[in-house]
Design a protein around this nucleic acid. Sequence first.
RNA 1: CGGGCAAUAGCGCAGUUGGUUAGCGUACUAGUCUGGGGGACUAGGGGUCGGCGGUUCGAAUCCGCCUUGCCCGACCA
Length: 484
Amino acid sequence: MAEKITSRSVDYSQWYIDIVLKAKLADYSPVKGSMVIRPRGYAIWERLRDELDRRFKETGHQNAYFPLFIPMSFLKKEAEHVEGFSPELAVVTHAGGEELEEPLVVRPTSETIIWSKYRDWIQSYRDLPLLYNQWANVVRWEKRTRLFLRTSEFLWQEGHTAHETRAEAVAETELMLEVYRKFAEEYLCLPVIAGKKSESEKFAGAVDTYSIEAMMQDKKALQAGTSHFLGQNFAKAFDVQYQTREGGLDYVWATSWGVSTRLVGAIIMTHSDDKGLVLPPVLAQEEVVIVPIFKTDTKAEVLAYTDKILAALKAAGRRVVLDADDNSPGWKFAEWEMRGVPLRIEAGPKDMAAGTVVIARRDTGEKVVVAVAEIPAKVAELLAAMQKDLLEKARAFREANTHDIADYPAMLAFYSKEGAGIDSATGGFARGLWCGGRECEAKLKADTKVTIRNMPADQQQDINGACCLCGAPAKHRAIFARSY
RNA sequence: CGGGCAAUAGCGCAGUUGGUUAGCGUACUAGUCUGGGGGACUAGGGGUCGGCGGUUCGAAUCCGCCUUGCCCGACCA
């Protein structure tokens, strides 16, 4: 609270931890890798979740809930799936004081339990498509954890859909990726790159995995959401067949897609500064904080003044809070900046005499004097401007740190720059042509820890040239980066 | 899971050749003044020194194991 947070330029990791703890978004728990989400952090998740839920329903999806415990044997039905997840499984072997006949896996994701039920529910093409989503917690035992970004238990949503045709399932995969992309940009102010993952980076059990990738302020990439085309893999594993329109029998086509509380970490890392949290206004628990500035003998009249402003903003539908505590104004300014409230209204005797207030923007620090009657309109204007500017600022940062790379020496040079500025320099995003081969991708990772984030969907034209890693004829254009 | 560092009041830390009643800053509580960028003074409350075990007449201090966190690596829809 009273302590300052570590500067980004000193230690980016510590800066992030300081913000999460000091803005009271989350705290550690006694169990390694699991975290407590505190009210100020949960409020961000709630607002994000509600908006995303609205968008899912708008695109025809329904919510359901599937159980936390999954029979171990279910995981084993899809070979790649169990192989991918087994190192991270938490398994219940005892319950009710006895050893269980079959161990129960605490869900790391719900494809298997869901498809075991889809088998019962799908008989005919008339039962399709099935467009279900669930909001749930999942557990993946992580070796190395970070608040919000990688925890052993996290909150997420997982959509699981079943379709008649391959084309329809692919379209759903792409549709949900686009829902995520728009949501990330419009609501979270996170500019993201939507594209397909390489073979080595895709989901265990998927035919194709797509992702949205964002750039953090240390220039590392963060996968902010994924959408998978599962083909008929799970339908075959769980024997989910349906009668086709032609009277035949075929396996159902599937997708799954998800975003998690990791998004909260992405938001923090993208927008915040050395004073603390900076939030897109639509996500903020409070959009406006009013700080009255008074002496003991002027307290009553100043509070009467700010009460009217508070009432006017509430009447305008704003999420607003008045901080009438006896802390000094400077203390309050710093505290509310730490918490990431987008706008601060300062009102004291001078303002009262002039019939004005001072409004300060959290992101730019800019202060403007506004007449009392104009406050609701000005607040609306500033909040909208901030929502827009945060996205543009983040986009400009990403563009400034994205470079086209032609060959391997250039790639090595790009990622070997010595660490001036934030953290150890990570170079940023490299954009280059790629042959699609696993070998050169693996070599790059071994040499530099840089991986292919994805192949941007809108940048696959004019692929004429050599792979920037191995020189073979290129098939794709890819984004490379170090990542979280 | 391997290597390194750390854990003492809510937070940040000091204390330790083993010795009575564990200390500082800050935060917290009460009061007075103060108040436009983290204010001053006075008086208070707050501790199983991360856990378990060992050595010892005596352990925050020495030893062992464990837990949690941070950094580096391995791993990672």
